[in-house]
């Protein structure tokens, strides 16, 4: 197996701001168990500048961790993301990563991964198995 360059990229820390995203809300009405929901929810938005400066391309999957919880999300670029941080639409993904004290803004780390994007069912399993 060829060595993958991405493996050598280091982890970066960012503050994630959570908010509404019309396109994601629309996907909720189409169905929370639809592919479209995952496509529009399992996403972390960065500015193109910040993303590229850290070696990320649009469409890369990254492991986003907060505390001892992590999910794999797809990177998308938008000019409305915080300059040196990230934006996520609120959904089961942010509910999993955040807590009440940091519900709308939380700190997370991003690192490259070769795994697929996490599905909502996988999050539910993780949570339920702990209870």
């Amino acid at each position: 197996m060829p060595l993958e360059f991405s493996k050598f990229l280091k982890k970066i820390g960012v503050q994630v701001v959570v908010g509404r995203w019309s396109f994601q809300v629309e996907a909720m009405d189409r169905g929370k168990f639809s592919d479209e929901f995952i496509e529009r929810s399992a996403v972390i938005y960065l500015t193109e500048e910040f993303g590229k400066a850290n070696g990320f391309k649009e469409g890369d999957v990254v492991r986003v961790s907060s505390g001892n919880k992590s999910v794999n999300l797809k990177i998308m670029f938008t000019d409305v993301a915080p300059e040196n941080g990230a934006f996520m639409p609120n959904s089961i993904y942010t509910s999993y990563l955040s807590d009440f004290s940091n519900f709308k803004r939380f700190n997370a780390t991003l690192e490259p991964t070769d795994d697929d994007v996490t599905k909502p069912e996988e999050i539910m399993q993780k949570v339920l198995s702990k209870i």
Partner: peptide, 26 residues
């Protein structure tokens, strides 16, 4: 499960939970 911190919301699986909703939900 979609909108509250999951640590707490997950506990709904342990108690008697009744969901009234037009659509499928987590």
């Amino acid at each position: 499960l979609n909108s509250l911190p999951l640590e707490y919301a997950g506990k709904l699986s342990e108690i008697n939970t009744i969901v009234i909703d037009p659509r499928e939900t987590f």
